[in-house]
Write a protein that binds this DNA or RNA. Sequence first.
DNA 1: TTGACAGTTCAACAGATGTAGAAATCTTGA
DNA 2: TCAAGATTTCTACATCTGTTGAACTGTCAA
Lengths: 97, 97
Amino acid sequence: MQAGELAGVLGALGQETRLQIIRILAPLSKGKAPVGLAAGQIAAALGVSPPTLSFHLKDLALRKLVVQKRRGRELIYFANLALILAALGEFVGELEI
Amino acid sequence: MQAGELAGVLGALGQETRLQIIRILAPLSKGKAPVGLAAGQIAAALGVSPPTLSFHLKDLALRKLVVQKRRGRELIYFANLALILAALGEFVGELEI
DNA sequence: TTGACAGTTCAACAGATGTAGAAATCTTGA
DNA sequence: TCAAGATTTCTACATCTGTTGAACTGTCAA
């Protein structure tokens, strides 16, 4: 993890809407066959407008905290749990030493 | 952990200056006899002005991520590692389920 | 090819945030 | 009591952030 990168990850997760996005995607992003969730469904579930959701998804995707996959005309999003857990785990380890 | 509280903790840590405060305090805030660090020394170590440091310490103290103790005319700060690790641990647990 | 759907990008804006200088507060040592 | 030190609070300001409506892009179905 680069210097300054951890603050970026924590900051990205430290915003209510983005944290909710990760929380709703998490259980749908693991196991043998992750299913993910379409952008529109995330927006509906969270009660935010499409542009607002897209703004946050872009931020999360830039930091690779989510990944997207097209399915027809929908864009399916998945949480990158491996990266998130690695970042948090590294930080926890640093604090515990 | 209350709803919305986790985002607050992550957000507080997701700012370079505040994250550095926690990082510099962490090793000085544990063990049998935590020593902590005076506000002025933190400011000097981080290269930020006293008002700026105070602004961030207030934010961290409000969320109980740091605690203070007076020693003469200095205010010694300690990271509340138990709380930070509990919050991160709870979140990690939620993502891993 | 075209109409509708899904999502993003653009433009604009209010409000929040981070910072530093100046002033105020609190504590101690003489 | 008083001067100096340590830190906070006040004030001001530039920048960043989150949100929205409007416009745009890409995809599919008929």
